[in-house]
């Protein structure tokens, strides 16, 4: 018995039946499921699991669109989408064998390959530019690393090394910046206890706005921290044995993202009673998020693209924080097969 897949089915079904939102979920699930299986080539679909990097929010809209519009089923995949959370290490599900594909941060993945010989391969990148940035208030703006001199900057403990690398690349002495720990809560910034924080530029400016202040930000990517985010990672085993499924997943997911970005304000409200129900976040927040992330995800080479220049830039930026990756940790050939 797999509780996740059952819930997943239920969610997908009620997303399909838009008018059924008020009916008991149980009924909606039955009805939706029937129409689903009769609509596609039933029986031939392969079960495929993916591990997301965080709880459901707009960061994963593309997958929800692809699920809702049946892109995975059209490819013959029965996708089991697993949400993440603070204690879920996406790479662990690859090692534990519970999922063949995970969305990760490139630094942790490459570090695991280097240090532990973890059998990982990066086959795509959702964010061409990492959404992490330095966020400040418009009334006390910080527009570049140089502006940080003499200021207090709150940094999540796991990003301290990256921030120090960004400062040194930009020629700022880290001793001139007062770095304090940050836990993804904008309140201290709004109240003026700190001057800036390192957070997701796609998300936190909205919360700050809600709290009655205007935010401004710059990407760490634009100041030397040139790494991807939500890298698509699979195991070497999966690459050997499930290559076809991985390509299908990439194809369907790219369709989901392309469809989502045709009008980034269209889909988040449609998931109010499904993927975004009960997450504790507002749909307005997801709308802001989805619009803000568009330029960071879209790429001339298509969604998930990993150009040679981008890979080189990733390796260089990671090298600056002591993570020595190599080109062979990236495999771009699956993207070519889409």
């Amino acid at each position: 018995m797999n509780p996740i897949s059952r819930r997943q089915m239920l969610i997908r079904a009620s997303a399909a039946g838009v008018g059924l939102a008020g009916l008991p979920a149980f009924l909606a699930a039955c009805g939706g499921d029937d129409s689903k299986s009769s609509g596609s080539s039933s029986g031939t679909s392969t079960k495929f699991t993916m591990q997301a990097a965080w709880v459901n929010d707009a960061e994963f809209t593309g997958y929800f669109v692809a699920l809702t519009n049946g892109y995975y089923t059209d490819q013959g995949l029965d996708l089991n989408y697993q949400s993440g959370g603070p204690d879920v290490i996406p790479e662990s599900t690859l090692l534990a064998g519970t999922s063949p594909l995970a969305l990760t941060t490139p630094d942790s993945t490459i570090q695991a390959i280097v240090n532990d010989n973890a059998p990982f391969v990066i086959v795509g990148a959702q964010y061409q530019k990492n959404p992490l940035g330095v966020v400040s208030l418009k009334k006390n703006p910080i527009n570049s690393p140089a502006d940080l001199v003499g200021k207090t900057l709150a940094v999540p403990p796991s990003n301290t090394v990256s921030v120090e690398a960004m400062l040194s690349i930009s020629g700022v002495n880290k001793a001139d910046v007062n770095i304090v720990p940050y836990e993804y809560d904008p309140t201290p910034l709004v109240k003026g206890e700190i001057d800036a924080s390192v957070d997701f530029t796609t998300n936190v400016p909205f919360t700050i706005q809600q709290a009655g202040e205007e935010a401004t930000s710059f990407l760490m990517y634009d100041y030397g921290f040139t790494i991807f985010n939500d890298t698509v990672v699979v195991t070497k085993d999966a690459l050997k044995n499930n290559r076809a499924e991985i390509v299908k997943w990439l194809r369907a997911s790219r369709m989901g993202w392309d469809e989502n970005f045709k009008d980034p304000s269209k889909y988040p409200p449609m998931f109010t009673d499904t993927y975004f129900k009960g997450t504790g976040r507002t749909i307005e927040n997801e709308l802001y998020f989805n619009n803000a992330q568009m330029p960071l995800i879209k790429s001339d080479g298509g969604i998930y693209s990993m150009s040679e220049e981008a890979i080189a830039a990733n390796l260089e930026a990671l090298g600056a924080i002591g993570i020595k990756g190599t080109r062979d940790m990236f495999d771009t050939t699956l993207l070519e097969e889409i």
Binding site: I4, V55, S83, G84, G85, P86, G278, T279, G280, R281
Partner: peptide
């Protein structure tokens, strides 16, 4: 700690 969508702890996290 996460893992699935529902639960009061998940709600708190979000």
């Amino acid at each position: 700690g996460g893992g699935t969508r529902w639960g009061l702890g998940t709600y708190l996290l979000g």
